[in-house]
């Protein structure tokens, strides 16, 4: 379980997170939504310890994770932009990440699933954007961790890989994992998310299930419901 209390983060004069409180119970898929610049990535990076909050606390399973690093062994993270050292091969990169995390991994199944075998000995610098994203996904899902964080996971994927990705996400959910996903693709949210966390101006503006959101905004589809949330604030 993740408990975030009174989290503040400023970048210079820009206030990104403004006293954010959030509780995420273990198990299920949580979609973190919000307009551009609403603090989604900052929130995720704070949980990962990549962004250091100005004040507030983040607890995972009751323990504060600020300034710690070993708790990350229980988190898998898919970053937004996949960019790796161009001179390493795919195999070497996978070996390296495995080497850095003393944990069991099922990379072979995933490599097969995404059809990456022909690329294993190619240098990462020569791969296309979509293939890099597949490598990125393999790196993320090859470990068995309780918390999985995906930042725009669908970027650059072809339809087959997208279906594979959704299947993996469902499987992880069935194993009782907690998944946090940010995305701008509403059909994906509609399909997989259990709960929606809507960020606006550095705070939680809505948290609940898709049905609750539709009920509250009196809209029949998710896309309009979200649009409704965004515009309501502006009026």
């Amino acid at each position: 379980m993740i408990r975030i209390s009174n989290l503040h983060k400023r970048f210079g004069k820009l206030i990104v997170l403004d006293g954010l409180d959030l509780e995420i119970k273990s198990g299920g898929i949580f979609a973190i939504l919000g307009p551009n610049g609403s603090g989604k990535t900052t929130l995720i990076k704070s949980i990962l310890g990549m962004v250091i909050p100005n004040s507030g606390d983040i607890k995972i399973d009751g323990k504060s994770v600020l300034k710690k690093w070993d708790y990350r062994n229980q988190i898998n993270y898919l970053p937004q932009i996949a960019n790796f050292p161009g001179n390493l091969t795919v195999n070497e990169l996978i070996a390296m990440v495995k080497n850095l995390r003393p944990k069991k991994s099922n990379d072979i199944d995933l490599i097969e699933l995404f059809g990456l075998q022909p690329f294993l000995d190619k240098k990462l610098g020569n791969l296309s954007g979509g293939t890099k994203q597949k490598v990125n996904i393999v790196l993320t899902f090859m470990f068995d961790s309780d918390l999985i964080i995906l930042d725009e996971p669908t970027t650059g994927l072809d339809p087959i890989s997208l279906i594979n990705l959704k299947e993996i996400i469902q499987k992880e959910k069935e194993k009782g994992k907690t998944l946090l996903i940010t995305t701008h693709i509403m059909s994906l949210v509609d399909e997989i998310a259990d709960k929606i966390v809507f960020l606006l101006d550095g705070n939680i503006y809505f948290k609940g299930s898709i049905d609750e959101l539709k009920l509250q905004t009196k809209q029949t589809d998710l896309e309009h419901a979200i649009a409704n949330l965004m515009t309501k604030e502006n009026v």
């Binding site: 960019n83 990440v97 995390r101």
Partner: peptide, 10 residues
């Protein structure tokens, strides 16, 4: 970006 990937590791 690669450093970011490493930063997410334990």
């Amino acid at each position: 970006e690669f450093t970011e990937l490493l930063l997410a590791q334990p």
